[in-house]
Amino acid sequence: MHLKQLRPYLYVVPAFIFLFFFTYYPAGFAMVRSLFHWNTSNIQPAFAGLHNYQQLLQSRRFWQVVTNTVIYSLSFILVSTAIALFLAVQINKVKRLGSFYKSVFFYPTMIPMAAAAMIWMFMYLPDYGLINAYLRRLGLESVNWLNDRHIALFSVTMVGIWKYTGYYMLLFLAGLTNVPEELMDAAKIEGANGRQRLFKISLPLISSHLFFILIIAIINALEAVDQIYIMTQGGPSNSTNLIVYFIYQNGFRFWDMGTASALTSLLIVTLLLVVSVLFTTLGKKVYYEV
């Protein structure tokens, strides 16, 4: 082989080394260790077969966490992408101050999640938080945002949506600005209304963006942990415990690394499955500009 042919591989080597040591190796390690008891009584891991998985599938807590994660992910993905698309379409129409609006809606993305969670925690305080102050001014009942197990999951989802919507909006905007003006003008002449133009022309043309945002949103939803750690620690009554926080809890708080590894493996497999299903179904229909 010529050096020229080798070159592309050489360029990939640094990235691959990084990926190998910080992604593939730990993932493989977790999968192996998920087959071991590895806890305060077994400092040296002891082979356990599928015992960790069996225990998990039988525990009510695990299923509660799965349910929480599914509810969080679905509502996060649907609401944040819908709002992002709406904002992008509106801002795309604006003739003046477009960049002003862009930065206004994008700014939550620039705040680290930990800081954002602190801000929201103060806004959610029951007695002197901002949100309840407004509610009371409107003559409404105060809500115990983070300490009511029927509401807390909704409250932490709001923070995720608030944080990521601006980012998705920017991605949508990037797509929308690429939709050729002539196509829109032609459609207008043909008598297509706004909704038809959006669903028949814009959306199909930016389907590659839409697909990308969907993938990113799924990942952002499943990896949500910062705001949980800071705002609720998974409570009250385990109602805001999401999968990544649950892994942390089992691994570092309860020092049950075997169970934590089993959870990690389940998460990796689920993510790979979801993403590959998406690529083979929706991914096939995506329109890529050539």
């Binding site: 009511d148 197990r149 409570g235 009250p236 009554s237 385990n238």
Partner: peptide, 10 residues
């Protein structure tokens, strides 16, 4: 135990 207290008082 904390969770139990949250459950019952909730």
């Amino acid at each position: 135990l904390n969770e139990m207290k949250e459950d019952i008082l909730g």
